[in-house]
Design a protein around this nucleic acid. Structure first.
Lengths: 209, 209
DNA sequence: ATGTCGATATATCGGTCCGATATGTCGGCA
DNA sequence: TGCCGACATATCGGACCGATATATCGACAT
């Protein structure tokens, strides 16, 4: 599930672990903070599976030569450049030499597609869908639509189960649990409406933003 | 985090693992399905810590004596009784003899209070709060209020971080990610309003349902 | 009787993820 | 010079999950 996120980011540019983590934590809002304890093992798994490869190894002492396409801590240099304008400009925060920059491989591209479509009926399905949505632009339109509709069906089913469960037990719940369940039901309803909007946009094919 | 739920249920009545699982999965709606793979280890941990104790051991062949307070698979017998009315009534689904019924101890009660108030700043904080809310009726009112207010503060902070993050990166997000983040922001706002309602009710001390 | 099926019930295994922690490099500053 | 904070990789223990194994029991058909 984390593999999906890593592959999705590497699809756009080569990155090293630390930068990957920063993007993951800041990109998906203030929630779902990816930790190093899962990121590095996931990278190792992906490398073992041949889905990514290390582009720049550890020690590379003679790198007076301009570091090539590899963007290093590029985003920081880009975003924060304005704030550090007083510095002598020749200071893209010179990275430590012990970094490992990863690139996605063809196997990785295939795995990415596979993960994007994987049925994951479980509790972490919510997190998984969030991740999938963040990268579904790489999907052909009809598969994207399928993804949305499967998600919608899952939420509708969940809602139905919750409703029957409530009807049979409402009087036995204290007010806090009742409020909790009601709020959860409302949230699910809003999630479904949101998906309906996404699906409608998708059907009339395009981005009428 | 699962310990909290187990202790909360055992606080009300003695239960065995299977029944515990059923209540957990059906009680907290159709989401957050607790699995045996976490339930039984959690029970073992709690027993090792002296927070629960096994009340009825495995084999108990001579139980022609009416099984006492222990409600066995009581909920099923209760709810499904109507559907099995054709049966000769003398059939509370006679349980297998290999069950282990657990009861909460004094140490368990203390642990329960402790877990209810524990600060858990992390990603699973959402699940944890849901669980806490489901059992917060056991808390004295002022602590319950504190629980709500800490949660509210956390959400407000999360919202603020999300907003600044959005402002600095909105133009670089594709429409799906934008929609995702917007929807997440709205959901968090609604969560805060919901908490405000709970807090208001709590402050004027009582259940004006 | 026998056999199979589904519900009940406990338990373990492998794997993923997380938080905490260790280790080390580097630039800035007192 | 020495220290601090940001950068960067990595490991460890623990919690949780999904899948699976095992066994008992009642129901129902053969």
């Amino acid at each position: 599930m984390l593999e999906l996120a890593i592959l999705g980011l590497l699809k756009e540019q080569e990155l090293h672990g630390y930068e990957l983590k920063k993007r993951l934590t800041e990109a998906l809002g203030a929630f779902s903070s990816v930790s190093f304890g899962s990121l590095y093992p996931a990278l190792a798994r992906l490398e073992a599976a041949g889905a990514v490869r290390a582009v720049v190894a550890a020690a590379d002492p003679g790198d007076d030569a301009p570091p090539p396409a590899v963007p290093m801590t590029g985003s920081i240099a880009g975003e924060a450049a304005a704030f550090r304008a007083r510095r002598p400009a020749t200071r893209p925060p010179r990275p430590s030499r012990t970094r490992k920059v990863y690139a996605i491989t063809d196997r990785g591209e295939a795995l990415f597609e596979e993960l994007l479509e994987a049925e994951s009926v479980s509790a972490d399905d919510d997190r998984a869908f969030t991740l999938k949505l963040a990268f579904c632009r790489h999907l052909p339109p009809e598969r994207r639509l399928g993804l949305f509709e499967r998600r919608r069906a899952l939420l509708v089913e969940r809602l139905a189960k919750a409703r029957t469960s409530i009807r049979s037990r409402k009087e036995r719940m204290d007010m806090y649990t009742q409020s909790l369940v009601d709020h959860g039901t409302e949230s699910t309803e809003r999630d479904i409406s949101w998906l309906d909007r996404l699906i409608a946009i998708e059907r009339q094919g395009g981005d009428p933003s």
